[in-house]
Design a protein around this nucleic acid. Structure first.
Lengths: 168, 168
DNA sequence: CAAGATATGTCAGCTTTGTTGACATATTTT
DNA sequence: AAAATATGTCAACAAAGCTGACATATCTTG
């Protein structure tokens, strides 16, 4: 390889900043590594479920999120969606435009406030959202398979407790 | 605005593909919307915790993941890390190089197989990983605050059940 | 009614983080 | 000696985030 060979014996290291740790980081029980990593792996696999379907439509995960929430709350405005996704206007504009142009979402001027664009799924938009949610829901069902119905309550409370307080 | 006004009355729509849905997508009880969305919001806020710290070091979330797992399993190889993160070699190479160059991670040729590069955190690398884990752990503790210790077990089982089976 | 605030769209450009495919080097295995 | 393996690297690209500025339509307010 190139000359980036490394040796176990380190450079002079007065302050100890380059001293190596061979022991696993545990956090001395003050850090909940188990939940931190459980969340990472669970979410990593959870969001990978819809990838096959998304590829067929030529969309990505950003489109998934948009089409999901518009289906969940038809008539929501662009501002609502920005607040839900916590991304910027331009980031949203790109994927939203593609979904509108492809006929998955329609925009309707607000009946009271005509500056608003209320977002509605079309039939194909609804079908896509359902198809994307389905494998995720199956994964969830499988996870709960050997657990009780009270366990589902517990998980819901946990997930709610992990979220930031609503600002409005 | 531009001429992208939309009206509630749609274009001719024989097949109904453009018909709008004004009703919220429920999945008719077959889709677990509550958990799907709970996971999304929980993870969205969970990963935003370390952002302030990362900005100081000039790193991003990809660096966070690398420095975390190297700290958790010092001596892991590049191949191990690729398998954990499920990203490509080039994606990892970029951020790993930056972490090595900045002195957060050291590489040591494998003692048995000298082709391998075993990864170890330096002292600063360990400190960074702990600092990043801390706000996340506090969030988790807060979520469990009003729940029992058995609830933590339940959540761990759920998160494990959400993961793909290990291939090896 | 004029002025300002608001909701949305859009332009231009940048960054991070993912992807592919090809190829080089050192080392181990066969 | 040849093949396989672990890693690094080059070039190029794509998705999805960001900023700041500015335009338009519409609503609210003085």
């Amino acid at each position: 390889m190139k000359g980036n060979d490394t040796v176990a014996r380190q450079m002079p290291d007065k302050d100890g900043k380059n001293e190596l740790h061979e022991d696993a980081m545990t956090g001395d029980g003050r850090i909940d590594m188990e939940i931190i990593e459980g969340l990472f792996f669970a979410y990593r696999d959870f969001v990978s479920d819809p990838d096959a379907i998304l590829e067929k439509s030529g969309f990505g995960r950003a489109h998934h999120r948009v089409v999901h929430f518009v289906n969940r709350e038809p008539g929501m405005t662009v501002a609502d969606l920005l607040d839900t996704l916590k991304i910027t206007k331009q980031s949203l504009a790109r994927v939203l435009k593609q979904l509108v142009d492809s006929g998955y979402i329609h925009q309707v001027a607000g009946p009271e406030d005509r500056r608003q664009r209320k977002l509605y799924p079309t039939r194909t938009g609804r079908e896509l959202a359902l198809a994307l949610a389905e494998p995720q829901s199956r994964r969830i069902a499988r996870a709960f398979e050997k657990m009780g119905p009270d366990d589902r309550r517990t998980v819901i409370r946990f997930l709610a407790g992990m979220q930031n307080a609503k600002s409005d």
